[in-house]
Amino acid sequence: MLKRKIGRLNYDGSVVMFGAASLGNVGQDTANKSIRYALDHGINHFDTAADYGDAEVRLGPIISEVRNDIFLATKTGQRTKEKAKEEIYRSLERMKVDSVDLLQLHAVGTIEELDKCTRKNGSLEAAIEAKEEGLIGGIGITGHGHQAPVTHLEALKRYPFDTVLLPLNYYMYSLPEYKEAFDALMEEATRQETAVRVIKAIAKAPWEEGADRPYNTWYEPFDRQEIIDACVHFVLSFPGLAGFASAGDVDLFPKIVDSVERYGSMTDEEAEKILSSVSGYTTIFGAPTSID
């Protein structure tokens, strides 16, 4: 399994993160099988959140046993110091661990949300306090939507976050404004040794109205192996990228792992040819156009 440094946290993490959103609505047996599959394939980077349904609970039984062998990250979506601190303690209890390697301020995709986190008695203060108490290692920030890179660049001006986590895929990077903002964020993150981790690598489009939804994702994901391979190749081709999160469905996870294990077998030109020819490929965050 390919590994890269998680910024100045200086941990060699698997480039594919086990995105525990996939465990939010499954039973414990299914969760155990998926976690074991990840561990068996050398994945040591696990990423969850307090609001991913029962994900933290599902992680607990196995993760607590291998805690010293993995990088464990969770998130709080609370915006006040008091509520965020309560959620941090709750996350530790649910996962049956004494600490996590990374606590992220969750869903901070706009300046308005950033302001809530960084104001007096905001959630950032809870994270800093938790770090001082040894409950967490690093402090990160996450965000969805087209404003995430601009927001996270501003966040790095306010506080030296250890990680950022935001959307990146071939389509979004083809949008000039998103590309410019993402590149600017990457430049500043590199300067600060902040780890850039991404989500939505294999997101294809919003679900069509009334369409069957065979996957537990809120967007339509790619599920053909060749296209997943191209998507994975695209995001991993960014040399400063620490890793990407797997899609939120246990059935897609093996395909993503397979792609990562074969990373390097596809050229940039081959990936470009595949992704540029996909019909209906668009952003899941509401942009009006698509690549046809």
Rank of each mutant, 00 (worst) to 15 (best):
M1V: 15
I6L: 15
G7M: 02
N10V: 01
D12L: 05
G13K: 01
V16E: 14
F18V: 03
A20M: 03
S22K: 14
G24H: 08
G24K: 06
T30K: 12
A31L: 04
A31H: 12
I35P: 04
R36P: 05
L39C: 10
G42I: 05
A50N: 13
A50V: 06
Y52R: 00
G53E: 01
A55W: 03
G60L: 09
G60E: 13
G60F: 10
I62A: 06
I63Q: 06
E65F: 08
E65M: 13
D69S: 13
L72I: 01
T74I: 00
K75Y: 07
T76H: 07
G77D: 02
G77V: 04
G77R: 03
T80F: 10
K81T: 06
K81L: 05
E82D: 15
E82S: 14
K85T: 09
E86R: 15
E86W: 13
R90L: 15
S91M: 08
K96F: 10
V97N: 04
D98F: 04
D98K: 08
D101M: 02
L105K: 04
A107L: 07
T110D: 03
E112Q: 13
E113N: 13
L114M: 04
R119G: 11
K120Y: 13
G122L: 03
G122V: 08
S123N: 09
S123L: 01
A126S: 11
E129N: 12
I139Q: 01
I139T: 02
G145S: 10
H146E: 08
K157A: 11
K157T: 11
K157C: 14
Y159M: 03
Y159S: 01
P167T: 02
L168Q: 03
Y171F: 15
S174N: 13
F182R: 02
M186R: 05
E187L: 14
T190R: 11
V196F: 03
V198E: 06
A203Q: 11
A203V: 05
A203Y: 07
A203D: 07
A205W: 10
A205G: 09
E208C: 08
R213S: 09
N216H: 09
T217G: 03
W218V: 06
Q225S: 11
I228D: 09
D229G: 09
A230P: 02
V235N: 00
S237G: 09
S237R: 10
P239S: 06
A245P: 04
S246Y: 04
V250M: 08
V250L: 05
F253K: 00
E261L: 15
Y263D: 03
M266K: 10
M266Q: 11
T267R: 04
T267D: 02
E269A: 12
S276N: 13
S277T: 13
V278C: 12
S279I: 07
Y281A: 05
Y281M: 12
I284D: 00
G286R: 09
T289M: 06
D292T: 11
